[in-house]
């Protein structure tokens, strides 16, 4: 890494600045005492954060988003456990194809998923509510849940489950006593990742939320009013902080899981 090394290093640094500098501007303007989002900064204020606490529509959007994100996390993780277990423990005809179909939303453009879901739901006459958003979010979160849980199941020595059966436990009690505790870090990780994805997902929520906007949809709707912009910056700051915190917790549990199962870390999301 001599010679060309410094050039690559400069490139990497610039790349990271380009990637993260806009996010750093969020807290900067969130605490700036001016309704105009521009330099120079005029002074320090927490006024925009206070404004957030006095906006009922925002509170409703937060409530919708939390209900949707929690439901999505639980549903996607449950489905993920079944799929990951099937994918890692059993051989059955058409397995590759089935798993491929489940993982497809990972690469499918979200707008396509959103539009097709909207068309189908309208055709069969389902009213657009938070429930329809949950359905859409489960669809796109399940592949992430499976990816995380797959690695949890793969790092679990199969003979551990066999040993429990050999020692007199049924398949069900083996799952409860051995499998579940050992993949628990993966489950927590999957819950947190699904929760985070659902919480800030916009396109599907925009198409399917009807009259119950989620937080991102609410934020988007507020962008039409320039005076609301600093408050959105404040909200964005809180969201970024929460997302980073959640991902860090998820990663902590994933690593702990690998250590507990005595495996070797093969890389994760962070």
């Amino acid at each position: 890494m001599r010679g060309g090394g410094s050039g690559f290093r400069a490139y990497a640094v610039l790349y990271l600045i380009f990637l993260y500098a806009p996010i750093l501007l969020l807290p900067l303007f969130a605490f700036n005492d001016s309704t105009i989002i521009a330099f120079p900064l005029t002074g320090f204020t927490t006024r925009w954060f206070e404004e957030l606490t006095t906006t009922p529509a925002l509170h409703q959007a937060v409530r919708n988003s939390l209900i949707i994100a929690v439901s999505t996390a639980i549903l996607a993780t449950c489905l993920g456990i079944f799929a990951a277990r099937a994918a890692t423990r059993y051989a059955f005809p058409g397995k590759a194809g089935i798993i491929g179909f489940i993982m497809l939303p990972l690469v499918l453009p979200e707008i396509i998923v959103a539009v097709s879901l909207l068309v189908v739901l309208l055709q069969i006459g389902v009213k657009l509510t938070s429930f329809t958003v949950i359905m859409g979010h489960v669809l796109i979160c399940t592949p992430y849940a499976i990816a995380v849980l797959n690695s949890a199941f793969l790092s679990l020595d199969r003979s551990l489950e066999e040993a429990a059966v050999d020692l007199g436990e049924t398949r069900l009690s083996t799952f409860r006593l051995i499998t579940l505790p050992l993949i628990m870090p993966g489950i927590i990780s999957s819950l947190l990742i699904s929760f985070t994805i659902s919480l800030d997902e916009f396109i599907i929520a925009f198409f399917l939320s009807g009259t119950e906007p989620t937080l991102p949809v609410y934020i988007w709707s507020q962008l039409r009013f320039p005076t609301k912009l600093p408050a959105i910056m404040a909200l964005g700051t809180i969201l970024v902080a929460l997302s980073i915190l959640l991902l860090m917790i998820a990663e902590y549990f994933r690593r702990q899981g690998i250590r507990r199962a005595g495996g070797k870390d093969s890389g994760g999301f962070l």
Binding site: L160, E162, A163, D166, L167, T170, I178, G262
Partner: peptide, 17 residues
């Protein structure tokens, strides 16, 4: 396996971690 009068020592030992 759980109803058979046999018990096994696995190659990986399968100690519950």
């Amino acid at each position: 396996a759980n109803k058979r009068p046999t018990n096994m020592v696995f190659q990986s030992y399968a100690i519950f971690p």
